[in-house]
Design a protein around this nucleic acid. Structure first.
Lengths: 148, 148
DNA sequence: TCCATACATTTGTATATACAATTGTTGTAA
DNA sequence: TTACAACAATTGTATATACAAATGTATGGA
């Protein structure tokens, strides 16, 4: 990645700040590429994540709280995220019969097939992003990230 | 950092995806902490970055394009970011006399003193974030991030 | 039973951001 | 000089997000 931005900013910037900025630039790049890959499929990165979590449930419905726990977003957004997916016909929502405060969310078969197409696009993007990484690199990176 | 989210999501998730998710979680954490640190000062992370870039100019005014080059945001937002900072009295904007298409932006002395307070808060946050990192760790992390 | 409390989700509102279209300015070739 | 393309910034609009407040539901104790 081009880190000119970082270096240009300030020659004597300490390594701590540089690392933080570097991380944020990398994250932005990842986000942009992922978002671009999903664009033809008409879903946002967050919506894609919801779908993926729902598939991981293997039929067992998820309620909003569990969705939220596994996601990097705030509760109030999750409601609206799911709204969008319902409009697209990718998920369905119904009140939980045993506890009517809860809402059960399921992926539809329509959603599953759309998701498998998205998977392909995302896999490609992921490979492109990580083309310069060996498996050892990935392991070290994960270990370092664990220190946060 | 707590990576349970990642591991819970899917046991057999490949290391490539895991790394990407991991990065995005770390970035979210950084963002949240930084934003929280700036909150008492009434500026957003982006606004803080603009101020910092302007200070780096050492008196030389910056126009919107150069600000934009060094930032992780879109041009249209930079205009509005600067609007906010003007409202707070931290920067001033005037039309460039030599090329009236351009706009020159300067940090005010008011902005400089506010910025130095923010610096302290940010430095603390940075130290807290990176408390588990040795200098070597930081170097390796930077090197790995360069591979993106 | 009634009430206070906690829970799960939703809604309202302000702000942030992306993307496209627009405005105003400059340079340049006919 | 005029017409046109390129440039720099701004505005409009749709969507996304954060945060606080509100809604509806369940639970436990007086």
């Amino acid at each position: 990645m081009n880190v000119e931005k970082i270096i240009k900013t300030d020659k004597q910037i300490p390594i701590t700040s540089r690392t933080i900025i570097h991380l944020s630039l990398v994250e932005t790049k990842i986000n942009e590429m992922m978002t671009a890959a999903l664009k033809p499929h008409g879903v946002s990165l967050q919506q894609f994540n919801v779908l993926r979590i729902l598939r991981g449930q293997k039929g067992k419905p998820a309620n909003l709280s569990t969705l939220n726990e596994r996601m990097v977003t705030k509760m109030s957004n999750t409601t609206r995220l799911v709204d969008k997916l319902i409009l697209k016909g990718y998920v369905e929502r119904m009140v939980c019969p045993s506890n009517r405060r809860k809402v059960e969310i399921n992926i539809t078969s329509n959603g599953e097939s759309a998701l498998s197409l998205m998977d392909l696009a995302m896999k490609e993007t992921e490979e492109k992003l990580l083309e310069n990484f060996s498996t050892d690199d990935l392991r070290s990176l994960n270990d370092l990230l664990d220190k946060f």
